[in-house]
Design a binder for these strands. Sequence first.
DNA 1: TTGCCCACTAAACAGTGTTCATTAAATTTG
DNA 2: CAAATTTAATGAACACTGTTTAGTGGGCAA
Lengths: 203, 203
Amino acid sequence: MGIVERKEREREEMRQLILDGAQKLFLANGFEKVSIRNIADEIEYSPATIYLYFKDKNELLFGLHQRGFIKMVGEFQPLQFLTDPFEKLVEMGRSYIRFAVENPELFDLMFIMNAPMDKLDKEDWVEGDQAFGLLMQVVQECMDAGIFQKHNVQSTAMMIWSSIHGYTALFLRKRLGMFPECDRQPIMDEAFNLFCETLRRGL
Amino acid sequence: MGIVERKEREREEMRQLILDGAQKLFLANGFEKVSIRNIADEIEYSPATIYLYFKDKNELLFGLHQRGFIKMVGEFQPLQFLTDPFEKLVEMGRSYIRFAVENPELFDLMFIMNAPMDKLDKEDWVEGDQAFGLLMQVVQECMDAGIFQKHNVQSTAMMIWSSIHGYTALFLRKRLGMFPECDRQPIMDEAFNLFCETLRRGL
DNA sequence: TTGCCCACTAAACAGTGTTCATTAAATTTG
DNA sequence: CAAATTTAATGAACACTGTTTAGTGGGCAA
């Protein structure tokens, strides 16, 4: 009998319904201003129902964080057709920054907020691992092509990720207040280009 | 008559008393777990009293954020005696990372949390500006000494700050879950050294 | 048809940041 | 010095928050 399967399917649909409502509200109003009650209202269920599908609010946020990774990895796909490994790396960085600027709330959830990570302490972070794997591949290609010296791939990829991440983290958390509004974008762009040139010459 | 001055002084003392209590609790329990009521208990005043000295919780957090900058800039002082500009830059980066690791809550407040920055939207961020000025000076020295090429100082300093900041941001917000616990420190160190070498060779 | 199960919910709990009328003390004025 | 006024501090409330629990009603298996 397919009843148990149907129930399983309905359960998953309900989870997605909740995540849809949560995502809609979060992306519209920001995370600070959305409560479980708001989400419950949005999907026309009682607040308690949400707790039948998610252990707590952080687990719900973790669900959205997973959706964010699916979206970001999707945006990385096109650049797999670039032939020059270094160009691929630069475009990957540009994509990361563009994703952060265009999806600030999602990016926040994926790479900055504490809440969604509080559950997975010892169990490893598969989404992060997968995305980092993509970067390591490209770095490896750069080394194989003789563009970069042959250092440890993990450390090299980590160095590049951290550096690119820094821009987004400072920008999204409004730590560029020392530059006049109009100068920020040019400075950021110039800094990014400088980083790419420096890698090209020095790594 | 000195009454008005005394009142002014007492007011400032009270502000510091509140910040002391808040700092003690925050550094002990983390930010998530400390409420205005906790702080009021700690300093043996009513919660409402705190609102006579700080407009809201975010203004209180901004006060602690200022204290953090005083502490960090203090830790930068010793390295002003280093003669080699590049060594000075590297040590500055190391100090920034060390400060973040040793004072995670304070660093969070200074460079990651949204709350303390919500008030200053258009008025500029003097603490950040001052600290960034120190970095720009060192970068300028590196250029003058012919260690770096003569690019725009602001953009170059921004590039370096972002890159170093990235490590701390990913580390403090627990985004290194893809590496086994024991590998993290070595990878971070190697990535930092790699960044320094790359700057040395490529900038 | 009976009895069970399970999705769902209303209501409550314990907490949060914040405001406000009221009290009590310090200061200024008559 | 006494009266009036300003001021610091508070208890209690407001409108929220995330979360738990006891209870209800409709679909399912026996």
